[in-house]
């Protein structure tokens, strides 16, 4: 596997943006340090193990808060480094209203995850990125994603059950610890303060995309996720397109089990 590219420069820039907002940014510490505390936290918030969640759909009528709706700005970033000094472990930054203070609202949304990886840790960058969605892993939390966009619905019941950014950040951090043994530190930032604030991360997202594009040239492995693309076209000139789509179906069906 090719060595992972890292995002040290982009992490510094993301942190500089957060620091630039000064006292407006709330800093929270996740309530776990030991393995037992992580397990207890997961049970309390209902965080499912990877591949054990159920497909979640939250309809508009059941939605308490909507983040990053297609008509609003949204950005999602996962940035990693091998330099642990860049990451404040188990820290959550929040700029803007928390979920429990935004009942009924539709807000722009940035979700930024910063990870310190153990030296020499090698991983498929696509799986590092896809873990950020917590797809089907939190009750009452529906997430839909396009490259660079993240659309979240939080159900009324989830809000009543105590879902807020502290819980969501904790769940993301716990998920990264659980899913990737090479994750040494994890830090999360949420921005709901406004479109302009979310847009401050656009240039970082663009840079990341280019760098991640290089990363994604790696071969993805496991259970025949990708078949050989060297196909023989028989009668239909679009055979390759259809085969590619079959691959996508496999990817999705596997994803639904996660």
């Amino acid at each position: 596997m090719t060595e992972l590219a890292v995002f040290d420069k982009q992490i510094r820039r993301a942190k500089a943006i957060l620091e630039g907002w000064g006292g407006a940014v709330e800093h929270l510490q996740v309530p776990f340090t030991t393995r037992e505390e992580i397990e207890s936290f997961k049970r309390r918030v209902g965080l499912a193990q990877r591949k054990e969640g159920k497909p979640t759909i939250v309809m508009a009528e059941d939605t308490a808060v909507e983040l990053g709706h297609p008509r609003d700005t949204s950005i999602n970033l996962v940035l990693w480094t091998f330099n642990p000094e860049l990451i404040e472990d188990r820290t959550i930054h929040l700029y803007g209203p928390d979920l429990d203070k935004t009942n009924g609202a539709r807000l722009p949304y940035a979700q930024i995850i910063l990870l310190a990886l153990k030296k020499g840790f090698s991983v498929d960058p696509f799986s590092l990125e896809s873990a950020q969605f917590l797809s089907n892993r939190l009750p009452g939390y529906m997430v839909r994603m396009l490259p660079g966009r993240l659309w979240v619905r939080v159900s009324r019941q989830a809000l009543l059950d105590g879902l807020n950014f502290s819980v969501l950040g904790g769940a993301l951090i716990a998920a990264y610890y659980d899913d990737f043994p090479g994750v040494e530190k994890a830090e999360v930032a949420f921005v709901t303060a406004g479109n302009d604030m979310v847009k401050e991360f656009v240039s970082i997202a663009a840079e990341t995309k280019i760098i991640a594009g290089n990363n994604k040239k790696l071969t993805l492995v496991g259970d025949g996720e990708y078949e050989c693309e060297d196909l023989n076209c028989d009668d239909c000139g679009e055979r390759e397109v259809c085969d590619d789509i079959r691959d996508i179906i496999i990817l999705r069906r596997k994803g639904k089990k996660e």
Binding site: F126, S130, R144, K216, Y226, E229, L251
Partner: peptide, 16 residues
């Protein structure tokens, strides 16, 4: 290949 992985996730977004 990148496109495949992205489309796999994007289908639910688009349907919604």
């Amino acid at each position: 290949r990148k496109t495949k992985a992205q489309i796999a996730g994007a289908v639910d977004y688009k349907i919604m």
